[in-house]
Design a protein around this nucleic acid. Structure first.
Lengths: 170, 170
DNA sequence: GGGCGCATGTAATGAGTTACATGATTGA
DNA sequence: TCAATCATGTAACTCATTACATGCGCCC
């Protein structure tokens, strides 16, 4: 079990919720921290329920589609802490995808190679602009730390890419 | 198809090789660029052969285990360029794993949280030391760029982690 | 009447890892 | 003789995504 489960359990810790609500919250508020897909959340909730980490009850407003409302159980609370410690404890060596391509970049004509790198720079700068314009939201310290993390990584990426262009042999 | 295939095709471009040789080369020289597992390489070679991107011939020295020696085909050369362009073209937003845990870090006692972060700093610094002591190898510009990439990312990580410690509310 | 929001899911697929299994040669 | 190196592979599993499928209510 990993981070997806941790994320969901953490959201249920705050309050009982149904799948749609969780997905909605992630999309609106954590879109830049998690890329979990909606089906994944539904599957996860079912799995967590089967494992006894969350309980479920069905609610219905009028004739609307029924909701499966999930609540965290004591076992789930314990699991949350376990997963949290596990997540904080692990540290993987940064293995950026995209570097294999770079390894072979001299198989391309120099100007094509440069064009690719410059396009990457533009993409990075576009993302940085998004983060710069993003509104502040105060869901605990963690989210803000995480956003700042991305920003510094993106800046590093941008500078490194620019260096790459310069170091390409003529 | 992705980077694993690109990596293997690129190695076969240089010379025909068997699986063990490829795995050995990756382990010795690209251990810091790729984390591909050995079984994966064997599986990939078979798959690439079935797709017509590499040909195979069997060699045997004396009574040693027979080797499946793979060579890249013209179709494979074309595929290599296609995958290379694809790899260089794509750029994913950096989504560091480990940030979900960070998001919930205030659910832990402050001193435990700090200990986790400091351990991460140490791990990062250990890795940096490895890279600093690593011997230079001159397999094209690409590998060196890739190593430099990791180094700058790790330094960014280290600085960011130190900031995190400071920003943890008291 | 048509599109968006609400609400939930299943089936197939993909990518890769882990664990397992085998067996000969070579050098200390 | 015992460990390391050479050499290859399969089966089961994990994790998550994609594509598909459904259907009501509400507002314009």
């Amino acid at each position: 079990m990993g981070e997806r489960e941790l994320l969901v359990l953490g959201l249920l810790k705050t309050q009982s919720q149904h799948g749609y609500q969780i997905n909605d919250f992630i999309e609106r508020n954590l879109g830049r921290v998690s890329d979990m897909k909606k089906s994944t959340a539904y599957l996860l909730l079912k799995k967590l329920n089967q494992s006894g980490y969350v309980g479920v009850s069905i609610e219905q407003d009028g004739n609307r589609p029924p909701k499966q409302v999930y609540s965290i159980t004591p076992a789930g609370e314990a699991k949350f802490l376990e997963l949290l410690r596990e997540a904080l404890n692990q540290f993987d060596d940064v293995t950026p995808s995209g570097d294999i391509g770079l390894m072979y970049i001299d198989y391309l004509p120099r100007d094509e190679a440069i064009r690719f790198l410059q396009e990457r720079v533009e993409k990075v700068e576009a993302l940085l602009a998004v983060y710069a314009n993003a509104p502040k939201h105060g869901f605990g310290v963690g989210v803000d730390l995480s956003i700042r993390h991305r920003v510094v990584l993106l800046k590093t990426e941008r500078d490194w890419l620019k260096q790459c262009v310069e170091q390409l042999p003529k």
